[in-house]
Design a protein around this nucleic acid. Sequence first.
DNA 1: TAGTAATACTAAAACGTTTTAGCAATACCA
DNA 2: TGGTATTGCTAAAACGTTTTAGTATTACTA
Lengths: 343, 343
Amino acid sequence: MKGISIKDIAKQAGVSPTTVSFVLNGKAKEKRISEQVSKKIQKIATRLKYKPNQLARGLRTGKTKTIGLIVEDIANNFFATLAKVVEDEADKHGYKVLYGSTEDNTEKAKGLLEVLKYRQVDGYIITPTKNLDKEIELLQSAAKPLVLVDRYFPHVNSHYVVLNNYKGAYDATTHLVKQGYKKIAIVTIASDQTQMKERLDGFTAALKDHKIPFNKSFVKRLPFDLDRESFNNEIKKFLTAVKGVDAVFFATNYLGIAGIETIRSMGWEIGKEIGLVGFDDHDLFRLHSPSITCVSQPIAAIGKSIVDLLMKELNHVAGTPASPPQQVILEPELIIRGSSSRK
Amino acid sequence: MKGISIKDIAKQAGVSPTTVSFVLNGKAKEKRISEQVSKKIQKIATRLKYKPNQLARGLRTGKTKTIGLIVEDIANNFFATLAKVVEDEADKHGYKVLYGSTEDNTEKAKGLLEVLKYRQVDGYIITPTKNLDKEIELLQSAAKPLVLVDRYFPHVNSHYVVLNNYKGAYDATTHLVKQGYKKIAIVTIASDQTQMKERLDGFTAALKDHKIPFNKSFVKRLPFDLDRESFNNEIKKFLTAVKGVDAVFFATNYLGIAGIETIRSMGWEIGKEIGLVGFDDHDLFRLHSPSITCVSQPIAAIGKSIVDLLMKELNHVAGTPASPPQQVILEPELIIRGSSSRK
DNA sequence: TAGTAATACTAAAACGTTTTAGCAATACCA
DNA sequence: TGGTATTGCTAAAACGTTTTAGTATTACTA
């Protein structure tokens, strides 16, 4: 069952495909097609439920009305929620989304970029992995619209939308200090990427500003690609090794979840014996006993911002002066709950 | 920056585009292209990093190597996890995934199908909404490969992969009975679709089989499209209205989450004062205090099964006898935790 | 040595659009 | 009345592939 094409309409209307194309693309006036013919074509088109073949159109115009969304892991609550926002926002502009997960693996990310490229996506939303900067710059020099998200490359002048991760971590840590915790540890991911670096920096800066002596042994950096059990084991090892630790900041949502599980398995009472702050809000954090204080990202605003930037790029007419890449840094919200209170 | 095309290779190799196409599609032998020429073309192609333009190929062959994934809500843990599995499995066969969320809205679903159709996706994975049966049948009569997931239409003979929802609900309810709960309520979604119908049927059947008198007032069916607060309010109203209720089965993951929140806000002690079983596993269920008993779906197996079926269809050669639609029904696992124990 | 078969390749059409360049007919102007 | 503008449309090329239907050359057969 073939779809119906512009030719079918042309035949029925007794005009050329050219005319049909003009009319259906709203160029009737501009191309001086008479009202009569115009109306007739419109009528036939709706009667036949004509939908242009996007492949043919894409081949000719180079535009597919598709954007590529590269995330770390689509199954992760943060990215899944982001994907939903992106879907909705993109839809408003007639775009569809092809997604892919990198699992923080540079080779996988490169593969995804490659595939998306020869699928001719119009623009990219990318959660970059380490060492993806060259590829990003390549895309830029090819004038491909792209927006980085969650993290960026300081030496690459690109659009990006990220959280003020430094502030998030700083506020979380400050909060712990103000709550009376003295020996505060951080469990984070061994990554030099901006989001992780800033979270660690915010943490150490807060300690320093509040005259809490900083001790390297209070920092645990774990590889990204562990399974849940290994995370749990590593966290347990760490927390038992750190003498006198009385609070811990988990720098990602999944670390926080693993942390809760581990600490409970150790029999420590969250809040009382050990203060705890997580990253990203989550149903678990909200409903855990005690509920878990966390740094919450404004995911809807992030997604909206990303798509807005991307659309601006996509609608940018070649030849006109390009607007410079924009860096959007959104503010986190510290949601204070029971896990950071000794009472 | 244009990509390099088959013509560029042809020019460099001093042969025709046809020859290049044959070689790169592995038809060198079949089309009797000499080893020499074949090798030369291969070499040039890899040197130039040639990647076929998928639009052009798709236009010509009618195959886009893209599948459409229509879920209820990509932000929901269950569907997000499924999306990840589908992504991975599809990738093994060289397919990419376009996704869309219906929000259980038939009009949105129809819109998605329409868009995916004229984007020429090769196959569909669909979480159907109510009244989408006509569209499904239309796709089928157009010989489009498709697999329904999570729910299906009893009167439509299509591929589908679903949970044994009846058993899931039956086991959950039986478990509550065996734990000594006597007045067991269910909170579900007001939907006549199979997954919800079967969960309700499993619930009532279990009550009957265990001689628990069934009372219509113990069933609450809520509309899908409420926000969290409204869910909470409705659940609260329901639970306070039902005299003597001592256990409740929440028939979806988000209802379970809302249920936990609500019951706690009412000051009832989960397990002791009210038994609770949820649907789909979730970090919250695992780590809540008390932990929440739930009916868990084998998401990895579901995703794998779906993609396997779809690939079989996609690789099916026209003309050969079609294998009949397969119905895969996977078994749930009842994960027993603290919320269904009075101790 | 003519006829057939096999080998090694290619020209051109096709997929369904968009877009450029242009043509015929009518209208307008002096 | 001859020339220019304007109107209303279309032919054909192009996008980058795949595929059909060849052709030219060489090799084999009787």
